[in-house]
Simulated scan of single mutants.
Amino acid sequence: MNRGAKVLNLPNMITGSRFILSGCLMLLLLQEQTIPLALLSCLVFTVAAVSDWVDGYFARRYEAITVLGKLMDPLADKVLVATALIMLIPSGKLPAWVALIILWREIIVTGLRGAASSSGIVVAASNLGKLKSTLQYIGLGILIFPLGVLPIPYLHHIGMAIMYLALLLTIWSGADYFYKLRRLFLEDAR
Rank of each mutant, 00 (worst) to 15 (best):
D77T: 10
D77N: 12
V79H: 08
V79W: 06
V81E: 05
V81C: 09
V81T: 13
A82E: 02
A82R: 02
A82K: 02
L85G: 11
I86N: 05
L88E: 03
P90R: 02
S91T: 15
S91F: 04
S91G: 12
G92L: 05
G92T: 03
K93E: 07
K93C: 01
K93I: 00
L94D: 01
W97D: 02
V98D: 01
A99C: 10
A99P: 09
L100W: 14
L100V: 13
I102N: 05
I102C: 13
L103G: 08
W104V: 08
W104T: 06
R105Y: 06
E106S: 04
I107R: 01
I107M: 11
I108A: 06
T110Q: 01
G111N: 05
G111A: 07
L112T: 01
R113V: 03
R113W: 05
R113K: 08
G114V: 06
A115N: 03
A116F: 02
A116W: 01
I121P: 08
I121T: 14
A125L: 06
S126F: 06
L128S: 13
G129A: 14
L131N: 09
L131T: 15
K132N: 13
S133L: 15
S133T: 15
S133E: 06
L135M: 15
Q136D: 01
Q136P: 01
Q136A: 03
Y137T: 03
Y137H: 11
Y137D: 12
G139S: 04
G139V: 03
L143I: 09
L143V: 07
L143H: 10
L147H: 08
G148A: 11
Y154W: 12
A161T: 10
A161N: 07
I162D: 04
I162F: 05
I162R: 03
M163D: 07
M163T: 05
L165C: 15
A166E: 07
